[in-house]
Design a protein around this nucleic acid. Structure first.
Lengths: 112, 112
DNA sequence: GCCTATCGTAACCAAATGGTTACGATAGGC
DNA sequence: GCCTATCGTAACCATTTGGTTACGATAGGC
């Protein structure tokens, strides 16, 4: 298998708050590069670099029309993150069980 | 409000694959610093630094016993990430709806 | 008291990151 | 043909990151 261009993990991509905000914007509606840049205080090239990182992580889809570039969220964006996170949700659930157990024991003691 | 020690985001913390693996290990069972280090090829101080990042992000809990240090997963670890991720799950769901619609249209056309 | 085991921290280094300004490519209006 | 608008990329820079080796602190065994 030949990889064209740089690979990059979604985890790295979402580490930066600016990039998370870009994703949040693009999730709502398709946006042009300029529209995105206008939402931030940093320069347009800085945003272009963030967008590149997001594309290399497979999170953004690019559509060109004349000189303009439109960005949309890749349909399965962040599923890899979600998959990794899933066992942690089970962990929280088990923690809640523990709490439930503690509460029930306390109730039993009280009604004894 | 006075911040003791460095603040750090959970998103930065999980950007590194070694740190994600540390979390995965600690989620299963409490581990000593040395136990953790033994699981990786990098040096012990390198692991100590990763552990510090994870603690600063509020993901790890430390317990000391003599000269040993035991680490466990903080009960609510990564909930902030999960909260940020939640709208993306809705996004996937709506994408699935779209797909369902496409499939149903195709079925209708076929049976016409 | 001394040795050993278990650690974090300091100091240092190469590479990656996130920002900037300057420039080039491309398409549309006139 | 020329100007303008919309962009990405190149070159550069300061800071952060992830790794190393060397060292110090602390507690238990004998």
């Amino acid at each position: 298998m030949v990889t064209i261009g740089a690979e990059r993990s979604a985890f790295e991509a979402i580490a930066d708050p600016t990039r998370r905000k870009i994703l949040d914007l693009v999730r709502a509606r398709e946006m042009r590069a300029g529209d995105l840049a206008a939402r931030f205080t940093v320069s347009r090239p800085a945003i272009a670099k963030h967008v590149r990182v997001l594309r290399e992580a497979g999170l953004l889809r690019e559509r060109r029309e004349a000189t303009q570039r439109f960005y949309t969220l890749e349909p399965k964006a962040l599923e890899s993150v979600d998959r990794w996170l899933a066992p942690y949700r089970l962990f929280w659930a088990s923690r809640l069980m523990d709490l439930k157990h503690v509460v029930e024991e306390a109730a039993k003691t009280r009604t004894k």
